[in-house]
Amino acid sequence: MPADQQDIDARLATYEFTNSQLLRNYSGGRTTRAMQTIDLATQGIRELNQLLHQTNATDDIVVSNPGGKHSVAVGAMVPVTVTVQGHVGYYCAGMNADAQILVDGNAGPGLAENMMSGVVRVSGDASQYCAATSHGGLIVVEGNAAARCGISMKGSDIVVGGSVGHMSAFMAQKGRLVVCGDAGDALGDSIYEARLYVRGSVASTGADCVQKEMRAEHIEELEGLLQSAKISGCKAKDFKRYGSARSLYHFSIDNANAY
């Protein structure tokens, strides 16, 4: 095993993760309902997703044997809970509205892309451009998220238990990104009005992204986010806040080199 992976494991262990046990217990305040199982070893992705497109659907769904397949639980339009038992590939939970989608494993590129509302929770890591262009709802990654996490986010809340890769929150317009570990290079490049909270180190901030004062209202906001995300072991006061210096909003010839 490479030494850096041991470092990652050691670092993750210090966050007292909400782990998959909590994921299984995570009720989101919903009452228990009828349960339907989709086994992706024998059933198709469309069979699953079409269930989630029926606006009168009420059954919660358990998805077994996902095996890294693409487009698991995409386009949900109903307030049901989908529990995925294993790792998923590209574009899981894309365009989600209202559903609560729990992945007990890792997610490939494009998790919860363009999510509108609801909850997406991954017990492991998420690959690149997690929650890209997401408009609303809550996305929780208990492990690490790779490069470009929250790129062009438009109003969602993203909570990452571990670290995020480079170019995260690039052109982030609205919403909150919470990183309990470290952030890679060029955090928040060309950011608009999203608020970023990072507990560990930031390799570098991107153009027009600056560290800002952590006032009482921000501590309160962050505590609320950590609580909603059920991430324990982190104290809001240990985070730093980053946001837009707003110097690139209007073109000024003096800033030409920054574009």
């Binding site: 490479p2 850096d4 992976q5 294993g86 890591d125 690149q128 690490n144």
Partner: peptide
């Protein structure tokens, strides 16, 4: 299912 799994970091040799 029980393997240790991770995404390699950019520009890093494994």
């Amino acid at each position: 299912a029980k393997a240790k799994i991770w995404e390699p970091e950019p520009a890093k040799i494994y």
